[in-house]
């Protein structure tokens, strides 16, 4: 069966991805067996996150339901656009296909971190 992603490893990867950008990243792992609307669920969780003053991204993964979603707020969406979400999900999908959930999350965070550093480097003023 699919290995459960290690929370500590994911937290470290989040810290790496956030280095050099002011944006905040969160990862939610769900144990749902079915998830028909991952993006809708991501929106719900996103609305609960304390995002502080700067832009944020939420990556939602439900391994048992084999669904995931990556959601960013308006600020990041305006800067990075659809292109970012497409590239992150494409990278993640290839890992998911090999049942490598943790790998998918870590790779997705990597891609996100690179993009956020480009679009939202640390030191920029909040939009």
């Amino acid at each position: 069966m699919t290995r459960i992603p290690d929370r500590e490893a994911v937290s470290r990867a989040i810290a790496d991805a956030e280095a050099g950008t002011t944006a905040r990243i969160h990862v939610a792992l769900l144990d749902d067996e079915r998830l028909d609307d991952p993006l809708g669920r991501a929106r719900t969780i996103f609305s609960w996150l304390d995002r502080g003053e700067d832009a944020g991204v939420l990556m939602l993964v439900a391994p048992r339901a084999r669904r995931f979603a990556v959601l960013g707020d308006d600020v990041i969406h305006e800067l990075a656009g659809d292109e970012l979400w497409q590239s992150v999900t494409a990278e993640m999908t290839s890992h998911f296909a090999g049942d490598d959930v943790e790998g998918a999350i870590l790779r997705g965070l990597d891609v996100l971190g690179d993009a956020l550093r480009r679009h939202r480097p640390a030191g920029t003023l909040p939009a």
């Binding site: 994911v10 937290s11 810290a15 956030e18 905040r24 990862v27 792992l29 996150l49 304390d50 502080g52």
Partner: peptide, 19 residues
């Protein structure tokens, strides 16, 4: 250890957040 997802989690690195 291998069974169940343990209810899932939300991870962030940023301090101060609930999560």
């Amino acid at each position: 250890k291998g069974t169940g997802w343990g209810g899932g989690w939300i991870a962030s690195s940023s301090g101060g957040s609930d999560f």
